[in-house]
Design a protein around this nucleic acid. Structure first.
Lengths: 331, 331
DNA sequence: ATCGTTTATGAAACTGGTTTCATAGTCAAA
DNA sequence: TTTGACTATGAAACCAGTTTCATAAACGAT
């Protein structure tokens, strides 16, 4: 295995100085065409690939940012990252993905490693993180954006939807349709501030009688919870799910129990996944601007890196999408 | 903005040489505890964070690999990346994600950029890539694994499921149930070798009369195609979908047309997404070892990086999961 | 023919670490 | 008291590039 050739090798092979060889790569206009040709031939012959590290050491920039997210296995995060990566790429930044399983210790540990390998900024989900994490961010002074939330902490800007307002949109929709007894099926609130905010918003609303069912963010949780609830004699008329994936499970659950959506039970979700518009019935939901959030995060962090000035937070609007899974009880 | 401090600053502050400061970071045992304490105090005081680039320039390693995938927006890729990242992280490697939209030119362009920023290896999906890409890989000599396929090209190892065999599993299941006229709903075969392999395998099977419907990999495509097919008087008795997401749409489509799955139409999918086991009816499908693939890719590329020896290909097994969306016509 | 201005190039300094090699200091054994 | 071995440390070389600065050659204008 003959080791990789460097600029010195290229310069020697071409019979020029390293400075000239370097110029051919960066400012070719300053080099006489004839010389340029010789150097390019040397590059070709020696299969020269410049070292990123050496380049980074001079520019002081690695040109990559990291996203710390709980998992890639939820549509909301993968859709977000998809948009984020696309826009970052246009801005000539690369994206490192690190998953945390929603565990703050893992998050802090990975953040530290990422700082060590030279990432220039962070995009994290939610606002609650442990002390180590915040210390790390403060110490390293790296641009950091809180996403999926409109809460800002430690002076860090947030780019996301308002989880309380979004949840309220769903509640108000159900209230407007005449629902009072609502079963709320949600994800774990302990390690997940997005879920917690949504649940809290619903709890605060005193126009409804809500009962809360916590479990994982999965189709199975939605389905099983509905089947359990229908088995008891708890008289809910609607299921408010703080995630579409749970809502889809809820639809399946109601149908499996021989009941009908929406005439027996109304169901609302949150996010607007691709399934929502095609299911039977099509799912009423609160659309979260997930892709927009990805784009904005990319724009804002790029700007932050270029200008060095801390950006303002952005709250993206959520929108109630009324489809066929909710039903007016007054009619 | 006072610029980041470096090892020289630390050494000066602590009243030692850079060499000693460096030792405190890497081989602390060689430094007298007293001196070590002074240096650590300096590190703390100056908020020193070592430069990754400078470190990489010496070790020659950046410790990150890149995944080039069409999109993060398909569950199959995000599940794959989720497992990949998890395992890579355990192996102390970071993951850069680059999406290509399934466009070979974008792929080659991004690969080039990734090489420039110093990534140590690639994991790409499928086996068909353009000449530029292969030239780049050959020239840079970077470890590269083809995933999601069992085809190996240009001497590059593949880690994935056998798309033909997987498709055959689905066809044979339908044949065994007495189906002969099958509508195959699939994704685009032009830019997607995984879809192409599956479709080709089905075409080769002469026990069935298949008609093919191409469209995007989406719930909508499944649903709309089914509704169109049911509108014509094409007498299919089963829908074979080369992706679960299409299959879910197909179920919705059949039900929306007032027909029943599986007694009127059998439906099989491919992948085994989380929806499959919870839908009504639960979806029969061919389970692809997506997570396993992620883990293996991580293991193998790590090994390749450590040992420098090109690994052998791995074919992961697919498994037919029979649930309730397929029906024995003989009964 | 001479002067001033470009243009093209190279030597060397520089980035921020790691590593080698030399040396001063400490301690125990002869 | 001298020798040998070991510990702790620093000077300087090194990695692979970029950039500054000086200089030689080429060119145009007087």
């Amino acid at each position: 295995m003959n080791k990789r050739s460097n600029l010195r090798d290229v310069a020697e092979y071409a019979g020029v100085s390293v400075a000239t060889a370097s110029r051919v790569m960066n400012t070719p206009d300053l080099v006489k065409p004839e010389t340029r040709k010789k150097v390019n031939a040397a590059i070709e012959a020696l299969r020269f690939v410049p070292s990123a590290a050496a380049r980074a050491i001079n520019s002081g920039r690695s040109r990559f940012v990291a996203a710390l997210i709980p998992t890639l296995d939820y549509s909301i995060f993968s859709r977000f990252l998809n948009a984020l990566e696309k826009r970052l790429s246009e801005l000539e930044l690369s994206l490192i993905v690190a998953t945390t399983d929603g565990n703050p210790e893992i998050e802090a540990k990975k953040a530290k490693e990422l700082i060590n390998i030279g990432c220039e900024g962070f995009i994290v989900s939610g606002y609650s993180h442990n002390a180590d994490f915040f210390k790390l961010i403060e110490r390293s002074n790296l641009p950091t954006i809180l996403s999926s939330t409109s809460q800002s902490v430690h002076g860090l800007p947030s780019i996301g939807y308002d989880n309380r307002a979004s949840a309220n949109l769903a509640v108000e929709h159900l209230v407007a349709l005449g629902h009072k007894d609502i079963a709320v099926i949600h994800g774990s609130t302990s390690g997940n501030d997005r879920q917690r905010e949504r649940v809290e918003a619903i709890k605060r609303n005193n126009l409804v009688n809500a009962r809360f069912f916590e479990g994982e963010l999965s189709v199975g949780h939605g389905r099983e919870t509905v089947q359990r609830v229908l088995g008891e004699n708890y008289a809910a008329t609607a299921f408010l799910c703080t995630s579409d994936i749970i809502a889809m499970g809820a639809i399946f659950g109601v149908q499996a129990a021989g009941k009908h959506v929406p005439s027996d039970y109304s169901i609302v979700g949150m996010e607007d996944i691709s399934f929502a518009q095609h299911s039977n019935p099509a799912l009423s939901t609160v659309r979260l601007s997930v892709a927009k959030m990805g784009e904005e995060c990319a724009n804002v962090i790029s700007d932050w890196l270029e200008t060095g000035t801390r950006p303002k937070s952005i709250t993206l609007n959520s929108e109630l999408i009324i489809r066929d899974s909710t039903f007016d009880r007054a009619r």
